[in-house]
Computed example of a mutant assay.
Amino acid sequence: MGESGAPAGDAEGPAPGEGAEPKDDVRIEACAVDAATGKPSMEITVTNSAAWRVAYQLDIAFVTPVRVSFGDHGLATSPLEPGQSITTTADGILPLGGHVTCKVTQVTRTPR
């Protein structure tokens, strides 16, 4: 699914607002490791492409070169109106240091 700087779905998939699947409504804007703490973080933007009010549940992961996946986390949004976006930051809880790739592994969209 999505990696840093790319939609959470295929790069060729529909843009938010074009009848996209839930995973296509998510974009990783930034992926970084704090130099002082070694903890990873990612900035994520979610845009509701549905025609109704929905909330999103995201499963995210920080992937290091020595581990396939580390620290799967859940992240939920408040309900978003059609076309509304929200940007949030997800922080890892353990220091990983070095190179980290941020991924969104699953997206669920629930009517509210």
Rank of each mutant, 00 (worst) to 15 (best):
P14M: 00
V100F: 13
G13D: 15
Q106G: 15
T77F: 00
P95M: 06
L96K: 02
P79H: 03
A61P: 10
P7L: 04
G17D: 05
Q106I: 07
F62R: 07
E18Y: 03
L96A: 08
V63I: 11
V33C: 05
E3R: 13
G71Q: 14
T89C: 04
T88V: 11
G83V: 03
A50I: 05
G71A: 11
D59H: 02
A32D: 13
E12D: 12
W52P: 03
V54H: 13
K39L: 06
T89G: 11
F70N: 11
S69L: 15
N48V: 08
L75Q: 12
A76P: 00
E29M: 05
P65C: 07
A11C: 10
H73K: 13
M1G: 10
G9H: 02
D25P: 11
P82A: 06
R112M: 15
T110E: 13
K23Y: 04
A30R: 07
P95E: 09
L94F: 14
T37R: 00
K23A: 06
P95R: 05
T47F: 07
A15Q: 07
T45Q: 07
A11I: 07
V46P: 00
F70K: 04
K103R: 12
A11F: 06
E12Q: 12
D72G: 14
H99E: 15
A20Q: 06
P16L: 01
Q84A: 11
A90T: 02
T77A: 04
E29N: 14
E81Q: 04
P22E: 01
P79G: 11
A35L: 04
A8T: 03
I44K: 05
Q57V: 13
A61Y: 07
I86S: 08
A55S: 11
R53M: 13
V63A: 15
D34F: 01
L96G: 03
Y56K: 06
D72L: 13
V104K: 03
S78G: 14
K23V: 09
A55Q: 04
A6K: 14
I28K: 02
A76M: 12
A51M: 03
P14L: 02
I28H: 02
R27Q: 15
R67K: 13
R53E: 15
A11Q: 12
F62K: 08
T87F: 01
Q57I: 09
V107T: 12
C31K: 10
G9V: 02
S49M: 04
R67A: 15
A30H: 01
L75Y: 11
R27M: 12
I86Y: 02
P82L: 00
A76H: 09
L75A: 15
A32G: 06
S69Y: 14
E43Y: 09
V66L: 06
A61M: 13
G5I: 00
T101P: 00
T108A: 10
G5Y: 01
S78I: 10
H73D: 12
T45C: 05
G5W: 01
T87S: 10
L75N: 10
E3S: 10
A90K: 09
W52N: 14
F62D: 08
M42I: 02
T110N: 14
E21F: 01
V63M: 12
P7S: 09
E12W: 10
T110P: 03
A11D: 08
P111D: 07
I93Q: 08
E21W: 03
S78A: 14
D25I: 04
G13E: 13
V68R: 09
L80F: 03
E21Q: 07
